[in-house]
């Protein structure tokens, strides 16, 4: 049975293996180069802090288009790979047997359906974990430079491209595709449904609605004025920033919501430019009179964030969610294959 599973899927493994080799060939040299460039920039800034580029390393290093393209596109592979495996390994895994009638060939050999399914699923899910693990390990190592540069790996843009979460998403996508393949028995339908549901789940529902709430965010309150960002620790994943009035109501537009005494201050500092656009111009010197007025009225700035030390907690929680959903999909697959007629 193991030989059979290997024989059936070896071409799929070979294709992804080649992609992995190409990915490594791209990431290993560029990763080393980026890291050395960054390290020597940090070293020279330590000796020469006066160099203007040292105040904004992330804005001065790796500016050529090719570097920028690489930094943005290479991690995309980790975002798309689970989907690709779900569509090309998961969806056809069982639906192809049904459409080609080979279910009736293999289920009438002397192997129970349960054993057949177990071995098939084990091969495909273990292969998914191994390949996703290799891809993600490469990408995580490679992202070391940009993580250090941005001093953040928690932002929703990169959280999903590093660590252990991508591996569990690969497993989830394949389990989902397999389940729909067993359900609809038509590869194209299974493919379409998997595509839609996975995109909705992994790219919309989780990052926008679920992930921010794994743990209660930390809230900081700052008086109106500059220096807001200083109160948010480095590497945190900032969820919200905004103004609140004395009653804790969130304020969208200062101009219309400000209390009457501050409206006056705003009008005094209002200027109209040549194009007729209205703005605020503060005459230099000691503080901003508008901020002062709003502070007096009880207004303040509020930010909520997830601190960086929660990074691995979040990775574990999200991995737990996707693995639980994978288990549900696998259980449903067993039910569909064992209980339904050929």
């Amino acid at each position: 049975m193991n030989w059979f599973a290997w024989r059936q899927h070896r071409k799929q493994f070979l294709v992804v293996g080649i992609i992995l080799a190409l990915y490594a060939a791209l990431l290993i040299p560029t990763g080393l180069h980026f890291w050395h460039t960054y390290q020597s920039a940090v070293a020279s800034c330590a000796q020469n802090p006066a160099n203007p580029s040292c105040t904004d390393l992330s804005g001065s290093l790796f500016q050529p288009t090719i570097d920028q393209a690489l930094l943005h596109l290479a991690p995309l592979a980790i975002l798309l790979l689970p989907l690709i495996l779900g569509l090309f390994w998961g969806a056809p895994l069982l639906s192809k047997e049904y459409t080609e009638g080979t279910d009736k060939l293999v289920w009438t050999q002397s192997v129970s359906r349960r054993k057949w399914l177990t071995i098939k699923l084990t091969w495909i899910l273990v292969a998914t974990a191994i390949f996703m693990g290799a891809f993600t390990a490469l990408a995580t190592w490679w992202a070391h430079t940009s993580n250090s540069l941005e001093m953040n790996r928690f932002d929703s843009g990169v959280f999903f491209e590093q660590g252990i979460v991508p591996v569990t998403y690969g497993i989830f996508a394949v389990a989902l595709g397999t389940m729909f393949g067993a359900w609809f028995r038509k590869t194209m339908i299974a493919l379409g449904v998997t595509l839609g549901l996975y995109i909705g789940f992994a790219f919309i529902t989780v990052p926008l609605m679920i992930r921010p709430h794994y743990m209660a965010p930390v809230a900081v309150t700052t008086p109106m004025g500059p220096g807001f960002s200083d109160n948010i620790p480095q590497g945190a994943w900032v969820l919200t920033r905004g103004m609140e009035d004395q009653n804790g109501r969130v304020i969208g537009d200062v101009f219309t919501s400000a209390p009457p005494q501050c409206q006056q201050v705003i009008q005094q500092n209002q200027v109209t430019d040549n194009n007729g656009r209205v703005g605020i111009k503060i005459k230099g010197g000691s503080g901003n009179p508008i901020d002062a007025c709003l502070n007096k009225a009880g207004w303040h700035l509020v930010a909520t964030y997830q601190p960086s030390y929660r990074y691995w907690d979040f990775q574990y929680i999200e991995s737990g969610i996707s693995l639980s959903l994978s288990a549900v999909a696998v259980a449903a697959t067993y039910w569909l294959v064992l209980k339904r007629d050929a």
Partner: peptide
């Protein structure tokens, strides 16, 4: 391959 399959799937 089918023969090997038969061997692999039948005692």
């Amino acid at each position: 391959d089918h023969i090997t399959m038969g061997k692999s799937l039948n005692k």
